[in-house]
Structures are given as structure tokens and as C-alpha cells.
């Protein structure tokens, strides 16, 4: 079994200007933030970001990495609207493909199955259909119904964060929802998974129910060990959302000066190890 352990910087070195990057998690939950920050510190630009959006989308928009956002919502959960994403939208600095949450799922599934679309009723009658990228298809069967052809969301790169993984790239989630992380990986050409802890393979099945082994190594090309890698988003049971830190992040959207201050403190400090020190994240995981 090939050892797929790599660093955040190794992931960034695979990302080119203009690529389409899918990011797992949901809102401000289990986001691969150490990878997102590594991209934010890089000179990559013009990305298309595909995400059930949270601070991943907001931060990348704030630092000018994003040309287009493919999304159904962008929220910090306890703060309903992602403030940096709002700023970018209201300044007109990013374009969007607006999707329904379920249509988003179908788009990832279509890409994973290598078909151009999946049919659905979702979108009919709504203004989603005003977008040229979303088209309809007529059922070839006797019903002849016109349906939406939810377009495949094919990704160049997928980034996900799991609780546990092994060096071969198998991954395990320990919270209540797998979100769509496996589909993000299946929809992408290159797939990178950060994990709270890398463990021996035989510790995976003993560390949680067998159904928690959602990611297998066919779905990943690299694994990055990053304790507190999802901080400040939620990563229970290892840690909850850091609400105080998230409020500080949200306040950085109130002015360019505030953003510069936040970046100087939490981005310019360096990689994930330095960030952990600045953010005071040196305690061992409660569940670790």
C-alpha cells in the first residue's frame, strides 16, 4: 500500500490558476481549513470553488483567489450569512452558478458516475433556469416529461477533512453526517484528504462503526495529518466550532483594514503549525 502522506504545501503545488476546486464539509462544519489557508497564502488565482459553502468560500473570496463560486448557500451556521462572500457578491468580484442544495448533490453524483447530467424535477419553475448552464431534457419514455438536466460538477481537485485516516488514504468520519465528502472525491481528478489523526489501518474499524469508513483509498491521492485542521469550523467529537474565533473572523469582513489585520495574524504567520500556535490550539484532542 503506497504511503500517501503529504503536506499542505504539496497540495498547493498541484493547484493551477483557473482550476475548479471542490471543498467538502457543510457550512461551518468539517471544512479542510488548513488546506484552504494554504491556498489563501499561495499565488494561485482565478479558481472556481464548488462548495456547500462556509468559511472556505469566504476566506478564498476575501483574499482574491476566486473567479466563480458554484453554491447553494454560504453560511457560518451560527452567523447566518458568510460575510466575506457577501462582500464579494455585493462588490461584483465573483460570478456564480446558483444551485439548489439537492441539485448540487446530483451534479457531484453525475460527475462521479461520469455522465453529463442527472434528471430531476428540482429547479423547474424557479429562476435557477435563467442560467444558461442549467438546461432541460425530455424523458424518452411514454410520459414525455420535461425535466431539469442537473449538470455534472466535474472537479479538478477535491479537498475534504476527516477525523481519522491511514497513510494509504482511507478515511473515517466520527460525527453525525458524512456530508458529501465521498462524492466530492469521486467527482475530482485529484483528491486530497486532511485528517485529525493518521492511525494504523486496523485502528480505523475499531475506532467507530463500520459505516463511518466512508472514504476508501480509491478516492484519495494524498492524505495530510492536520490536528485542528478544520478549525474554526466544527469537527465534533474532536472539537466544536470555535465561536469566539469565528466572530473575530466575521469581524474581519467589516473593513479592508480589519481584513489586513486578520490576514497578518492568521495567514502571514505561516503554515498550520504556526497557525495553531497563534490560535492557541496546542491542547490535545479531547477524543484523540
Amino acid at each position: 500500500m503506497t504511503d500517501k502522506r503529504i503536506s499542505e504545501d504539496d497540495v498547493v503545488s498541484e493547484i493551477r490558476d483557473g482550476m475548479t476546486i471542490g471543498i467538502g464539509g457543510w457550512g461551518s462544519r468539517r471544512k479542510p481549513m488548513s488546506l484552504v489557508r494554504a491556498i489563501a497564502r499561495s499565488d494561485v488565482r482565478d479558481l472556481t470553488v464548488v462548495s456547500y459553502g462556509g468559511p472556505d468560500v469566504g476566506l478564498l473570496c476575501a483574499v482574491g483567489k476566486v473567479r466563480k463560486v458554484v453554491y447553494a448557500f454560504c453560511s457560518l451556521d451560527s452567523i447566518a450569512l458568510e460575510p466575506h462572500f457577501r462582500n464579494a457578491r455585493q462588490a461584483g468580484t465573483v460570478t456564480t452558478l446558483e444551485l439548489d442544495e439537492g441539485m448540487f448533490l446530483l451534479g457531484l453524483q453525475a460527475a462521479a458516475w461520469r455522465v453529463p447530467f442527472l434528471p430531476t424535477r428540482v429547479g423547474l419553475g424557479s429562476d435557477l433556469m435563467r442560467q444558461a448552464e442549467i438546461r432541460t431534457v425530455v424523458s424518452p419514455y411514454d410520459d414525455g416529461e420535461e425535466l431539469v438536466a442537473a449538470p455534472a460538477l466535474t472537479l479538478d481537485v477535491a479537498l475534504v477533512h476527516m477525523h481519522r485516516g491511514d497513510a494509504g488514504g482511507n478515511g473515517q468520519y466520527l460525527n453525525v453526517d458524512p456530508y458529501f465528502d465521498d462524492l466530492f472525491c469521486m467527482a475530482a481528478a485529484r483528491r486530497f484528504m486532511s485528517v485529525e489523526r493518521i492511525v494504523e489501518t486496523d485502528e480505523l474499524a475499531s475506532g467507530g462503526p463500520i459505516q463511518s469508513l466512508r472514504i476508501n483509498r480509491l478516492m484519495t491521492d494524498g492524505v495530510i495529518e492536520a490536528r485542528y485542521g478544520a478549525h474554526f469550523s466544527e469537527c465534533v467529537p474532536d472539537y466544536g466550532r470555535d465561536e469566539a474565533f469565528q466572530r473575530e473572523y466575521a469581524l474581519s469582513a467589516t473593513s479592508p483594514e480589519a481584513l489586513e489585520g486578520w490576514k497578518a495574524k492568521y495567514l502571514d504567520c505561516g503554515g498550520h503549525e504556526q497557525y495553531r500556535k497563534v490560535a492557541g490550539l496546542n491542547a490535545e484532542l479531547a477524543n484523540g
Binding site: 450569512l81 457577501r86 457578491r89 455585493q90 462588490a91 439548489d100 442544495e101 428540482v122 423547474l124 435557477l128
Partner: peptide, 21 residues
């Protein structure tokens, strides 16, 4: 405006699918 909204709110969330299904 679609390209530069006066106020970005929630996005479409699940509303299209909810209402049609």
C-alpha cells in the same frame, strides 16, 4: 442584480426542490 446583488442573502438553498417536490 444577479451579477452584483444589492444584498446577498441565503442563496437558493433547498427552495426550488422543496417547492416543486
Amino acid at each position: 442584480d444577479w451579477e452584483r446583488p444589492k444584498a446577498q442573502l441565503l442563496g437558493f438553498r433547498g427552495a426550488p426542490g422543496n417547492t416543486i417536490q
